Computed example of a mutant assay.
Amino acid sequence: MSKIASGTALITGASTGIGATYARKLAAAGHDLILVARDAQRLAALASEISAAHGVKAEVLKADLTDRAELAAVEQRLKDDAAISVLVNNAGMAVAGTFLEVDIDKVETMVSLNVVSVLRLAHAAAKAFVARKAGTIINVASVLALAPEMFSGPYSGTKAFVLNLTISLQRELADKGVTVQAVLPGATRTEIWERGGTDINSLPAEMLMEVDEMVEAALTGLELGEAITIPPLPDFAEFEAATAARLKLAPNLSRKDAAARYKAGKKAA
């Protein structure tokens, strides 16, 4: 894992699913761990398992990242602990249902977790890593950042935020010794579905990736130097073409005159 800075990895949402799988794989590569989630019992069991299997130090840091005081404690740990060289910004949640039907308070909690915590932890890590001229930030987004038509707008919007933040950070930190990667999983077999109110068994088997395969692909993408890794995408050139088409818009997105189509047929006053 040459692209990952050596040292301790702090992983959010580490009690299960993608976060727990990152923990196991990074521990196998020799990283000490700080495991962050709300479920202290599950974290403790995972920490014991990992320490026994790989001989690394695995610390539990219980925190609800939607609670500003508990989020601030994790931020402070990132700022103060010089051993931390990797942030896996993975914690997230989904809320099923149409916009008109959904519990808007749950959506606000989702925005707090998927956006605010990712933003603040990335900021804390970036400042600490830049000061040391070394570090790796992995932000877990979703393919729905690219396809809002496929799921609820609020959820895909939170993941679009993570993707845009990551792209901006990559440009800002490129010459400062810090690697930043966005990971865009497709549908992955984790507990997020049930927690969000969706029956995972309702998904077509051919579109559901096992979590171990997803994380292994994400780490391989990091080794390959990918700024954005989309594990299920067969031909990465398709994403590159979409990016090129988006960038082609740039010169025409801000001009002093409105486009001609908005003036066509306009009568003189």
Rank of each mutant, 00 (worst) to 15 (best):
residue 153 G to T: 14
residue 154 P to T: 05
residue 137 I to P: 08
residue 147 A to Q: 15
residue 137 I to A: 01
residue 106 K to L: 10
residue 101 E to T: 11
residue 105 D to E: 15
residue 130 V to C: 04
residue 141 A to F: 06
residue 102 V to H: 03
residue 120 R to E: 11
residue 139 N to M: 11
residue 147 A to R: 14
residue 141 A to M: 02
residue 147 A to I: 11
residue 130 V to S: 08
residue 114 N to Y: 04
residue 131 A to L: 10
residue 154 P to L: 03
residue 138 I to S: 00
residue 102 V to Q: 14
residue 123 H to Q: 15
residue 145 A to S: 12
residue 125 A to S: 09
residue 122 A to L: 03
residue 139 N to L: 02
residue 109 T to Q: 15
residue 144 L to W: 00
residue 124 A to V: 07
residue 101 E to M: 05
residue 111 V to K: 00
residue 132 R to F: 07
residue 145 A to D: 09
residue 133 K to E: 14
residue 136 T to E: 02
residue 151 F to P: 00
residue 97 G to C: 04
residue 122 A to D: 09
residue 115 V to S: 09
residue 148 P to S: 09
residue 115 V to A: 08
residue 138 I to A: 03
residue 129 F to H: 05
residue 98 T to Q: 10
residue 148 P to I: 02
residue 150 M to F: 12
residue 114 N to M: 06
residue 154 P to F: 07
residue 129 F to A: 07
residue 150 M to L: 15
residue 105 D to R: 12
residue 100 L to T: 12
residue 117 S to E: 07
residue 115 V to P: 00
residue 153 G to V: 13
residue 117 S to W: 05
residue 151 F to R: 04
residue 143 V to N: 01
residue 145 A to C: 06
residue 123 H to W: 11
residue 105 D to M: 10
residue 128 A to I: 07
residue 115 V to E: 10
residue 135 G to F: 02
residue 106 K to I: 09
residue 121 L to G: 05
residue 118 V to W: 00
residue 97 G to M: 03
residue 138 I to V: 14
residue 140 V to K: 06
residue 106 K to M: 08
residue 151 F to C: 03
residue 134 A to K: 15
residue 133 K to W: 08
residue 119 L to H: 13
residue 154 P to N: 05
residue 142 S to Q: 04
residue 126 A to P: 07
residue 120 R to T: 00
residue 100 L to M: 13
residue 98 T to S: 15
residue 152 S to T: 15
residue 99 F to K: 01
residue 112 S to V: 00
residue 148 P to F: 02
residue 113 L to Q: 10
residue 104 I to C: 01
residue 145 A to W: 04
residue 154 P to D: 01
residue 141 A to G: 02
residue 98 T to R: 12
residue 141 A to W: 01
residue 120 R to W: 10
residue 118 V to F: 01
residue 114 N to W: 03
residue 119 L to N: 13
residue 125 A to M: 04
residue 135 G to I: 09
residue 107 V to I: 10
residue 115 V to M: 13
residue 131 A to K: 14
residue 128 A to F: 12
residue 151 F to I: 11
residue 117 S to M: 08
residue 126 A to S: 13
residue 119 L to A: 14
residue 122 A to V: 03
residue 126 A to N: 06
residue 151 F to L: 10
residue 145 A to R: 02
residue 108 E to K: 13
residue 150 M to D: 11
residue 111 V to R: 00
residue 151 F to V: 11
residue 140 V to E: 01
residue 109 T to V: 13
residue 99 F to G: 00
